[in-house]
Design a protein around this nucleic acid. Structure first.
Lengths: 332, 332
DNA sequence: AAATTAAGTGTAAACGTTTACACTTCTTTT
DNA sequence: AAAAGAAGTGTAAACGTTTACACTTAATTT
């Protein structure tokens, strides 16, 4: 091992200038071209690498933003992280990712730790934290943007998917295809209620009876389970699932029962997970443009911390991706 | 906005002690219980939060490790990241994630930036960097562990999947099920060659002709394309795919051609992506324990930086996950 | 009872940068 | 030719911590 990393002082010595000059050479202040060159050769000769920690300490800018995410391995969340990185990397900034594991206390701690690290902004995805603890731990904290989560409009920027609209669109699509008995398997957390409302509204607008609604989890497991319960209603021809995983469970159940999709049952999901196009039949679903949402969140965060841009609420429209899991009913 | 975050000095003032004492209260040095309490109340009263930047500057420890990953959104990579976090969070450490986008130059820069941030260790996943630039940029750098990538054994720890063994197991499984004409769709990068070797060896050991081998990409796209080419060989009954995406392409091709899996063609994949269990039929594949690998990598990194543990090479055994995409041949 | 050791605290020097300010020299303006 | 401004550089003070060292007081040993 070598002794110690070279510092700006070593460079200054080697180049025969002061540390201030080296700093200027590094960051582009007034400097004679001749001196600039001298410093540069000294830098490469010594293999100097600037210490952003020390820099951050004096400038008060770390170039790091904190992201807390329910689960990195969730495809949608991973996409969001990707989107965040897309814009951060153009600014030479980095992010620290920490998993909240859908546990409020763990999440609060995660935020606390990120703040200790002096992150310049925070992006909280699908936070499970209640209003009060959130406001409390973020008191005096940095610019914060909330994704998939509501929050006080003055304090936080929010990126919110149009859950209501998406659900409305899905249900309307069924109706347009001639379906009348449309069921819904609802999810509990994160926008599940809004999706339920969207479904209800679409049914009401079409003067159709709000069909059987099952409150379930958001997992494939529970989708499978709920399916059994749901299909007691013999006249249901279509099911709008609150997310793709539920739809997957439903697929599995249909397979075990010998039900054909979409002939015996039409299905629409929500999220457009990367692989639902490969299901048999390919799943019609509502796309959540996760990566784009990540980009917007990061952009918003950057705007808040650099400019004096106030936090904004950006609604994201969900798009219906038409595939083959919905049958057009001929009878009308 | 409030003025300024309170510092240790403010706390010291409020508690009527010196900064050294506050620091001791924070980090647990010799301190009278009575003083400890005074400091603690001052801390909560002021809403003080320690500045890890400043701390890191003096201790030389940032508690951050850098991870460069080809693509966060890849399910396997995401799992690895998860595994890394699993162990980091138990130590109160964090990681900075940056995407190399499979581009060597971008990757080199990413590493450079992480080093400027004084990461204590580096985990490089599937790095595309050539030997020389890698050694060069990491000269005098921190503890480094390589995943899915070879490197000098003295300088780097490596976590390497037993690609050869996995491929061998898959092929042997086919053979045990009575298959004789077994094809392989190979991938180019990251372990593709080893998988090919494993396949070859298994065939040779069984005195079977090394069947048609197609060199393709690692994508669903190319799998679909290669499938067409492959199935000209009419007597092929089984295909070992170098990864699950290729297998997916093959599935799709079979569907368009009306071929039944596994009756007309048996298939094994590689990776066990999270959703292949839901394909129709569920795909038999080789599991790459990504999360576990991430854990091991992080553990290794921690060991290297804290102790004087030398870098180790940890082989990871791949496991065959038996599902329903392979038919047992009755004729033997 | 003197001498040692231990416990608790404060002072001040680091850590590696940036940057306000002062100081030269050199150019431009009057 | 004097005055004013610009360009380039150095000095030194921050930034918010930790920690070696010195110091007091109290507890223990001789």
């Amino acid at each position: 091992m070598s002794k110690r990393n070279p510092t700006i002082l070593d460079v200054a010595g080697a180049a025969g200038v002061s540390t201030a000059t080296v700093s200027r050479a590094l960051n582009g202040g007034r400097i004679a071209p001749h001196t600039q060159r001298k410093v540069e050769t000294a830098i490469t000769a010594l293999g100097y690498r600037r210490n952003k920690l020390a820099r951050g300490l004096v400038t008060g800018k770390t170039g790091v933003i904190g992201v807390v995410i329910p689960d990195i391995a969730g495809p949608l969340y991973a996409q969001m992280a990707r989107g965040i990185e897309d814009v951060l990397e153009t600014q030479g900034m980095h992010f620290m990712l920490v998993t909240g594991n859908r546990d409020p206390e763990q999440e609060r701690q995660a935020i606390e730790l990120l703040l200790e690290r002096q992150v310049e902004a925070l992006i909280l995805i699908g936070s499970g934290l209640q209003h009060d603890p959130l406001e409390e731990t973020l008191k005096g904290g940095p610019a914060t943007v909330l994704m998939q989560r509501e929050g006080s409009k003055e304090r936080f920027a929010t990126i919110s998917l149009a859950n209501f609209d998406g659900a409305f669109a899905a249900t309307s699509y069924f109706i347009a295809k001639g379906h009348k008995n449309i069921a819904h398997i609802a999810g509990i957390r994160r926008g599940g209620e809004e999706r339920l409302r969207g479904y209800r509204q679409a049914m009401k607008n079409a003067d159709l009876p709000v069909g059987p609604v099952i409150q379930g989890g958001f997992t494939e497991q529970s989708g499978y389970h709920d399916a059994a319960q749901l299909l007691q209603y013999k006249d249901v021809t279509a099911v709008f699932c609150a997310n793709d995983r539920i739809a997957l469970g439903l697929y599995r159940y249909c397979k075990t029962q010998g039900l054909q999709i979409p002939d015996d049952l039409s299905i629409i999901g929500f999220d457009d997970l990367p692989w639902v196009a490969y299901l048999d039949p390919p799943l019609t679903t509502i796309r959540q443009p996760a990566r784009e949402m990540g980009r917007i969140a990061a952009t918003q965060a950057l705007a808040m911390l650099s400019g004096n841009t106030p936090p904004q609420n950006t609604p994201i429209t969900a798009e219906l991706i038409e595939r083959s899991s919905v049958k057009t009913l001929t009878i009308r």
